[in-house]
């Protein structure tokens, strides 16, 4: 049953996404390109936190699924509609995540981290091998959306994906699966003794970020125009997603969003102002974040709220 607060939450979220959807009408250039970045990282970081938040498994597989998605579009966009490729990529990504999950999620945390980091490289090598066997001649995605710009269409697609991710996260949070995952995150032994099939729950939930990241990659392929393995499977993407999600706070559904927005803007300011020291300054910023905000912005906000409540 939906309570009044639920209806209000959904209404607020719907209005917020509706307002964001107006951005391309205001600016088609610089701010839209920042909007695409923010929307992309919001989708990736929020779906990442859906799994990693409750289970505390750090997944570095985002780049693997993202890359697969770009190749789904890159390989089939000439014969299949772009709009069908998005769900197709999601299915491929979800299935791969399922297989990977079955193989690794029975293991404890650190093995999982290492495997997911290697996964992007593994998939990249498989694609390279296939290209080498067939004498591949470069993947170009030359898509045209008529009167709408590519950037605009991608932005709206990503907003749609964000809406799906938030809805899925909200539903999972209320479901038995979400409850089971919270128990697993607190103590996996206890969860198992309570009769929860922990492996199944983890695999099921791991498929969500897999599917979402692949769909995101598929949506962004027309923006890159030229797809090559080194660029599609860049490991940096996986780390960026983790950093942003942790900066915001992975414990709340809206947590990653409050990390993505300041981080993207900070990244932009640093890139524009100190083009020769970008990596150095980002590293320094990350250190500050870890030391000053160990629980992310969510932790900061909740502490502030608790203090305000205590004072009253």
């Amino acid at each position: 049953m939906m309570s009044t607060t639920d209806i209000r939450t959904i209404a607020i979220a719907a209005v917020a996404i509706g307002v964001c959807a107006l951005l391309p009408l205001v600016d088609q250039g610089y701010w839209l390109s920042i909007g695409v970045s923010i929307a992309m990282f919001t989708v990736l970081a929020t779906s990442w936190a859906l799994f990693s938040g409750p289970t505390h498994y750090i997944s570095l597989a985002t780049a693997a699924f993202f890359g697969i998605g770009t190749y789904v579009t890159g390989s089939f966009y000439e014969s299949v509609s772009f709009w069908l490729l998005l769900p197709a990529a999601a299915i491929v990504g979800g299935l791969l995540a399922g297989i990977v999950g079955l193989a690794t999620l029975r293991l404890s945390g650190v093995y999982f981290v290492i495997f997911t980091l290697g996964l992007a490289e593994l998939v990249r090598q498989v694609i390279t091998w296939a290209q080498n066997m067939t004498g591949h001649r470069g993947t170009y995605v030359l898509l045209d959306f008529g009167s709408r710009s590519v950037e605009e269409v991608i932005y709206w697609t990503l907003l749609g994906l964000a809406a799906i991710v938030y809805l899925a996260g909200w539903l999972i949070g209320r479901s038995r699966l979400g409850f089971a995952l919270r128990i697993i995150g607190d103590d996996e032994e206890v969860a198992r003794h309570s009769g929860i099939n922990t492996a199944r729950a983890k695999v099921l939930l791991f498929m969500v970020p897999g599917a979402v990241a692949a769909a995101t990659g598929a949506a962004l392929a027309p923006r890159y125009v030229y797809i090559e393995p080194a660029l599609a499977f860049t490991p940096l993407l996986s780390f960026q997603v983790v950093i942003m999600a942790l900066l915001g706070g992975a414990g709340r559904l809206w947590g990653p969003l409050v990390g993505v927005i300041p981080f993207t803007l900070l990244w932009e300011v640093i890139s524009a102002t100190f083009p020769n020291q970008t990596t150095l300054l980002l590293g320094a910023a990350f250190l500050v974040i870890v030391y000053v905000l160990p629980r992310g912005f969510v932790g900061l906000l909740e502490r502030a709220r608790a203090r305000a409540g205590g004072g009253a």
Partner: peptide
């Protein structure tokens, strides 16, 4: 500007 060998950064 440094694009960090990343097409997203080049675009931006």
């Amino acid at each position: 500007y440094d694009d960090q060998t990343n097409p997203g950064e080049t675009i931006r």
